Simulated scan of single mutants.
Amino acid sequence: MSKILDIAHDMAKDLVEVGAMDEVTMRTVESLCLPEKKVFLPQDIRRIRTTNHLSQPVFALISAFILHQAGLNRTDFFDL
């Protein structure tokens, strides 16, 4: 996050604490302050997998489990 977004996020949290901002607006501010999503190229994924000594099936299983825990599925990320 950039320095400016950090400051804006801290100010918004303070405003919620004193009752000057509601939770819905805070969620909007938080969504705007999220860092950019990193794009992983196939070679990045392979490097991560091999560095952690994981086979492709095990890596896929772990990835699916993480998505499931977050309430997401592969179609949220890929056009299948």
Rank of each mutant, 00 (worst) to 15 (best):
F40C: 14
E30W: 02
S63M: 12
I48E: 00
K38N: 10
N73P: 04
L41I: 10
L41A: 14
T51R: 11
S31E: 14
S31K: 13
N73Q: 07
Q56A: 11
L54K: 13
L61M: 15
I48A: 04
Q43W: 11
H68Q: 05
L32N: 08
Q56E: 10
P35S: 08
L54T: 05
V24R: 13
F59R: 10
L41R: 14
P57F: 05
I66V: 15
L32A: 12
I62R: 05
L67G: 05
G71W: 07
L34P: 00
K38D: 15
P35G: 13
L61F: 15
V39F: 07
I48M: 01
M26S: 03
H53N: 07
F40R: 07
H68L: 09
E36R: 15
G71R: 06
R74G: 11
S55Q: 14
R49L: 08
L32K: 13
Q43K: 15
E36H: 06
L67R: 03
P57E: 10
L54A: 11
L61K: 15
T50N: 09
E30G: 03
N52A: 06
S55N: 06
V39K: 14
N52E: 06
Q69C: 06
L61E: 13
P35C: 04
R49V: 01
V58T: 06
M26A: 04
Q69V: 00
E30Y: 08
I45N: 06
P42D: 03
L34S: 12
A60D: 01
A70M: 02
Q56C: 11
C33R: 01
I45H: 01
E23P: 03
N52D: 07
K37F: 06
L41M: 14
T25Q: 08
E23H: 02
A60L: 09
E30M: 07
P57L: 08
N52W: 00
T50M: 12
L34C: 03
A60Y: 04
Q43F: 08
L34I: 05
